[in-house]
Nucleic acid binder design. Structure first.
Lengths: 203, 203
DNA sequence: TTGTGAAACCCTAACCGTTAGGGTTACGGT
DNA sequence: ACCGTAACCCTAACGGTTAGGGTTTCACAA
């Protein structure tokens, strides 16, 4: 399925990594605002234009692995057990993501992000995209021909949960408070069937 | 209470308005991206530095009246009737705001906003601020000493409702779908008291 | 093997939003 | 009438980003 990548693609990936590493190192050393694009390019020993052919913006250098986030959410919907209801599956995944970025090792990065308005704003718009693709994924899972308002709504709520929990002083407690609210909202759309002889897949 | 403004303040307000008008005119004429700050300043016959002393950024020229938005939401919470529950009051206000910006007269502006990533991103971060102050307002209304996770959550949900309804093909239908979900989420936090002899203010 | 097209990369020069620095005018209060 | 300062102006720059146009390096096939 995946061919062994040729020299070309390996070099490209190496360049990308070299840039990302240099950027992160400088950012943590001197602070996001104190590091210029030209500094990063010099440190990574590439041209500025090369840097921008790998990353769309300075902010994107910080959120290098954001496709992960998107994929993990959509897969949490698609790959869950055949009888697992939607919201708990999303809750597990969001919980894992929050724990991942509130870990001690990630703390300096998130401190930097929280300190920079530009980065916060960028993250916001990233989340909007994530909510959109989550909504699509949920609609597909429900067998809908297109994303409905309810799908979009619940997707937003779930993304809100991530961002609120991440910023909360006690992320676990925040999760425990937010997700029951999301559950309730979801039940308005897909009422849980009474535990009678109903064998259909829970929503 | 409000003194008649002196010549100075009148001139300042006039300058601000002149800039905003020039900007809007040019934006609608040529498109947001095709108009430079220097163009706007020239059209308004002011220096670039003057423009930036009235507006914090190019995007802010488009969202001139955003403090309105924030105030109307917080006031919808604070100024509602003494027995009106929280969510319906917010629903009314959001509905009015959505109708206001989906009116035909506002259509070209919002088409422009939707077409520009920079403007969409700016609006997003505006909304985050609005959600924060709405959360504060809700917490105050509930007599809480500080904003809790539940307040922040419901505030986000309400702001989401605004943005989802605004973008929906049928904003009214979207409102009818989203707000029952928010009601349900809110009931998890503040269960509606049974309609017995309970005379306390509904939440 | 060698030729060829394209991808990755480089450099220079600019564009555009935004800000610093430092000046002038005109209003408001004394 | 005077002074402080708010509003305004100009010039020059900074920093992210892109256009234009060139060179190297790889993948693939003739």
């Amino acid at each position: 399925m995946t061919e062994p990548p040729g020299r070309r693609e390996r070099k490209k990936a190496a360049t990308r990594q070299k840039i990302a590493d240099a950027a992160l190192r400088l950012f943590l050393e001197r602070g996001y605002d104190a590091v210029g694009i030209r500094d990063i390019a010099a440190e990574a020993d590439v041209a500025v234009t090369t840097l921008f052919s790998h990353f769309a913006s300075k902010e994107a250098l910080v959120f290098e692995q954001d496709q992960d986030f998107e994929q993990r959410l959509t897969q949490a919907v698609a790959d869950r057990g055949p009888h697992e209801p939607l919201i708990p599956a999303l809750r597990r995944e969001i919980h894992a993501l929050v724990r991942h970025c509130t870990a001690d090792s990630a703390a300096p990065i998130w401190r930097m992000i929280d300190a920079s308005p530009a980065l916060r704003q960028y993250e916001e718009s990233m989340r909007l995209r994530h909510a959109d693709s989550l909504a699509t994924s949920i609609a597909a899972d429900l067998g809908l021909p297109q994303t409905t308002t309810a799908c979009r709504t619940i997707a937003r709520f779930v993304i809100d949960a991530y961002s609120l929990a991440r910023e909360a002083p006690d992320p676990d407690a925040a999760m425990d408070e937010i997700f029951p609210m999301i559950e309730a909202a979801w039940e308005v759309v897909c009422p849980i069937p009474a535990p009678t002889g109903d064998r259909s897949r829970p929503r």
